[in-house]
């Protein structure tokens, strides 16, 4: 039965190849490695506006990814966005007055959360809330503010500042 042994080997190789391809797809193409990293602790941050922030967006500290956005919801009392961040256990010593801001990677890139450590000795514990937050910059608001301030500037020069409080 030399022939059937050959055939079995062929099938075995084929199965290995297929499973190997799946493994590489899992490890190299998709973010399964990032998955394991999100075994960490959850902290909460409230933002007035999260812009285009998505679940699973990265959380960085000094540009280094340290966690992921786990969940986004609206707080029923404050009507603010309540974002749950999962931070890797490796970074368990973040000060309690760490602040969180929403940034955009490049002009049109995805949004992520940047952490800025504060100076307190006490550290953030699982379930704690980050008090200092800065909302996402919404492009329309930015442009609106810019136009308003330019308009205000020109009108001031016209009326010679008569009505300024």
């Amino acid at each position: 039965m030399q022939n059937s042994r050959l055939l079995e080997t062929g099938v075995g190789l084929f199965v290995l190849l297929g499973l190997g391809a799946l493994l590489i797809l899992a490890l190299k193409v998709s973010n399964i490695s990032a998955f394991q990293q999100t075994q960490g602790y959850d902290v909460i941050a409230q933002f007035q506006n999260i812009g285009g922030l998505k679940v699973r967006a990265p959380v960085t500290l000094a540009g280094v990814p340290v966690g992921r956005v786990e969940n986004i919801a609206v707080d029923p009392k404050t009507f603010e966005a309540r974002v749950v961040l999962t931070i890797s256990d490796k970074y368990a010593n973040l000060p309690q007055d760490t602040s969180a801001s929403i940034y955009t990677a490049g002009l049109l890139g995805e949004q992520y959360i940047g952490l800025q450590p504060g100076g307190m000795d006490e550290v953030l514990k699982p379930g704690d809330e980050i008090m200092l937050t800065q909302s996402a910059v919404v492009l329309e608001q930015l442009i609106g503010q810019f136009l308003y301030s330019t308009a205000a500037g020109t009108s001031k020069s016209n009326t010679d500042g008569g009505q300024e409080p």
């Binding site: 799946l22 797809l25 899992a26 190299k28 193409v29 998709s30 973010n31 399964i32 490695s33 990032a34 998955f35 699973r56 990265p58």
Partner: peptide, 15 residues
């Protein structure tokens, strides 16, 4: 090429 791919392709959802 690889890092953007890994960041955006989810194992459970896509693969």
């Amino acid at each position: 090429f690889w890092s953007q791919m890994q960041a955006q392709v989810s194992f459970t959802e896509d693969v």
